[in-house]
Design a binder for these strands. Structure first.
Lengths: 192, 192
DNA sequence: GCGCTGTCTTGATCATTGTCAACGGTCTTT
DNA sequence: AAAGACCGTTGACAATGATCAAGACAGCGC
């Protein structure tokens, strides 16, 4: 249990077995079926979810009912409405499962306790957030400076099995396009 | 000296005078004139820069020579090419001053030392990066879900004096638009 | 096995945004 | 004060992406 969770931590910092046990006390395992919600807009995000297996997405819905995917999460990633999680405000994003998934949940109180008791976890968290920041900055830069074709090709290179595991219309949503436009972008790439 | 720098820290954590002195040892004050570069693409980002006074921008330049602003930094913000700063790889962004500015520079080695010697600074850094992450996520969400008019209005509400201090064409660049399109967006808002 | 549902594709058309060019205004330099 | 450079605005037109509609196909439940 929690193999991947601790493996990801070990990639960045070293924990003693005792520290691992402290952390384990606070973790909650959870299985979630495809299409089930982990979080709905308007509710408070009680947990951050680490993905042991499967995949999820966070998305918002605009006035016209269109979904906009702000994040995917696969094995080894963490997903939530971070702002809601940290502040206790109602969430502005929805989070649901793209596949049957196994999660490790951490509540805000648990996170605070772990941070207090395990100083190395503070470092881990900082590095993790920094990594997420850099990844999003890259995504934003590519939105500002690249053509649709370049953006799609980069995305498939960055996450090679994204295309196998996620419906195309969701990739379109993640890129800020309609499904039709993404289909044409793909066609154009193929024709070359 | 360093007033704002320590004021921003004090907003999140408490440092003893002794800890402040440790940190001060590692800080480098620097003045920079309008339009001067702090960092050029291809160079390694030796420092992160905290803005005591003035303003800067980070931007990339695409194949066609068009600039894309990834970040503005005003008083109390920090700016650099974070990836380059952390890894020592060549920077992909340029950073220059929009106004005559006063900065506090921190080298990577200095940052590591401070993190080692002042545990509270670790917390501060985590919180700061988290805040930057959330702000960028909001920017990305607004790019995905809002109309240009909504995005511009939100931006002016979020940073009320951005418009006074930054040329309009740079705001256009920050939004991913041509100056002409932003001009028309403003006109449309005004006509209502 | 059959029908249903959802997904992807394609075509036609529309709306939005980019491009190119011109003009007026302001600030800077001389 | 004049000249030049830069900026924001506007107009005409082109390119890009969205919308609407239809059809092919696969997967799923009955």
């Amino acid at each position: 249990m929690y193999e991947l969770f601790f493996k990801k931590i070990a990639e960045r910092i070293t924990l003693t077995p005792g520290q691992q046990d402290i952390i384990k006390q606070y973790l909650i395992p959870k299985k979630i079926r495809k299409n089930q919600y982990l979080l709905q807009e308007g509710d408070v995000a009680k947990h951050a979810a680490f993905v042991e297996k499967g995949s999820l997405r966070a998305y918002s819905v605009d006035d016209r009912g269109t979904e906009h995917i702000i994040q995917f999460a696969f094995e080894g990633w963490t997903i939530s409405d971070l702002y809601s999680f940290l502040t206790g405000e109602p969430a502005t994003y929805n989070v649901d499962a793209l596949e049957d998934s196994e999660l490790v949940l951490i509540s805000k109180a648990a996170q605070d306790e772990i941070l207090k008791q395990v100083p190395e976890y503070e470092i881990y968290t900082r590095l993790q957030v920094t990594g997420a920041y850099l990844a999003m900055q890259k995504r934003l830069t590519s939105m500002l400076s690249l053509s649709l074709e370049e953006r799609y090709i980069n995305l498939t290179k960055l996450y090679p099995n994204l295309i196998q595991r996620v419906p195309q219309r969701m990739i379109a949503s993640y890129m800020g396009l309609t499904p039709e436009t993404l289909s044409r972008v793909r066609r154009k790439i193929k024709d070359k």
